[in-house]
Design a protein around this nucleic acid. Structure first.
Lengths: 124, 124
DNA sequence: TGCCTGTCTTGACGTCTGTCTAAGCAGAGA
DNA sequence: TCTCTGCTTAGACAGACGTCAAGACAGGCA
């Protein structure tokens, strides 16, 4: 994976308002695709999708790694690796408080992705 | 993988109504994650994200491979490979009419994915 | 301070992915 | 029937990914 961080910051993934029109309305430009595809890719693993959901739906808006790990038949390092992938895709934030590390979802980018996938309701 | 794909058809990817509550509302079960993650994975490549958008936003609701291929600096077989990935993720349908092959988006699964990512609007 | 607990990082290994070239298949037209 | 065009499949290769074991690091507690 080559670098792609320089001029692509045009798209603010943390904004609350959708950055882009729905995918089905107008063709997604290459720059937008390059920025958003990694987020979809991060969600493209069943373990990470569940992790994302556990974090986003946790009470208080945050989840402790100590609660996430036992939910899977995977070793700690593997969960840590998946969490890192979610972090690098800007889907979650991590914060260490004492012994434990807490993860918190970033709703902004989730909104971007949801907006991109929006389709008009069925006409019948 | 020792699963036999039998009971996973509980989730109808082509239904128009969302199959599942938003990811941030309730924890996504493993079965649901296993079904939906491949769709996110398919969208997790910039080329496929653009292809998906070109197909979904095409007039008439369908796009010819002959129009898709020249839009990228990639060979025909590579585009064909990506289209196959979208097909296998149930994101698009293909139909041959005479010399050309036309691709059409399946809005149902896009709605499922969008619904899963839905987050409550910002409270301010 | 020293030990214990909990998490992250590193390195390794096998598998999967993205891309290409070459070959195969399906229709259309002469 | 032959040939041309358009798309897909097959095979190969480099690089990325998912997983684990082992070691490193950070904070709490006696």
């Amino acid at each position: 994976m080559s670098k792609q961080a320089a001029p692509l910051t045009v798209i603010d993934l943390n904004a609350d308002a959708p950055c882009c029109p729905p995918l089905a309305q107008r063709r997604v430009p290459a720059e937008t695709a390059a920025v958003l595809a990694p987020a979809f890719k991060a969600l493209g693993d069943p373990v990470r999708l569940q992790l994302m959901s556990m974090i986003a739906s946790a009470e208080g808006g945050e989840a402790c790694v100590c609660d996430l790990t036992p939910a899977f038949d995977l070793t700690g390092p593997t969960i840590s690796h998946h969490l890192k992938a979610l972090r690098e895709a800007d889907l979650v934030d991590a914060e260490r408080r004492g012994t434990w590390v807490y993860y918190r979802a970033r709703p902004g980018i989730l909104r971007q992705l949801a907006a991109l996938l929006t389709v008009e309701p069925v006409e019948s």
